[in-house]
């Protein structure tokens, strides 16, 4: 008999559960088969390609990504998770508004088949959020982008356009590099 656990979490800002699920269920199965969140892509099934990376917001350990194909619901129970469905904003009239990273990927034609894109979006989003807290020198951006996205595999070989898009977002967004600080408007 399959042992079950009671699972609950906050996924894309929505409370999920408590619900009984098999204790050895992997996160990608929960998202796709139980919650109908099919944007997280199962590919290698071994945590190697990063297509399925989702974001975990942990108050104690910070924000990080995990491979949903090999990370069990047992680890994510009670945690706050963001998937690709939770990245875009809303334009005020009910239509989705791409995040800066998503918009840059569109403008740079970064992806072709798009199978790896949710993983790239999530890891790049975490990188941008890290830089908001700890800006870096502009001349380090290329290295940091490569370091952060290096483990993501794209079979359409879109790496250059992905990396260029993320680099552009980082260099053009105030507050992410030392050379481009946020300028606070002073009251007149």
């Amino acid at each position: 008999m399959i042992e079950k656990i009671s699972f609950s979490a906050t996924i894309n800002g929505q409370k999920v559960g408590p619900m009984d699920v098999p204790q050895d269920l992997m996160m990608v199965e929960l998202l796709q088969e139980y919650l109908n969140l099919t944007g997280t892509r199962l590919s290698c099934g071994q945590g190697m390609c990063s297509a399925c990376r989702v974001i975990v917001d942990d108050p104690a350990k910070g924000t990080y990504t995990v491979a949903a194909c090999v990370t069990g619901v047992a680890w994510l129970n009670g945690k706050t998770v963001r998937t690709i469905e939770g990245i875009a904003g809303e334009d005020g009239q009910g239509a989705p508004l791409p995040s800066a990273i998503q918009q840059a990927f569109l403008e740079h034609f970064s992806f072709q088949c798009s199978y790896c894109t949710p993983g790239f979006v999530n890891s790049a989003t975490v990188l941008v959020e890290q830089l908001e807290r700890s800006p870096i020198a502009a001349d380090r951006v290329e290295d940091v982008v490569l370091e952060s996205l290096d483990k993501h595999i794209c079979r359409c070989t879109g790496y250059v356009r992905y990396y260029q898009a993320v680099k552009d977002v980082i260099l053009s967004t105030p507050g992410l590099t030392h050379e481009n600080p946020v300028v606070l408007e002073r009251p007149a």
Binding site: D24, A67, T71, G72, A74, N77
Partner: peptide
Amino acid sequence: SLYTGLCAGCHGTDGAGQPNS
């Protein structure tokens, strides 16, 4: 719970692993 959440996805719930992986 930690084993099932972080390790079993690759090493299996029974610890049988996967060849070369």
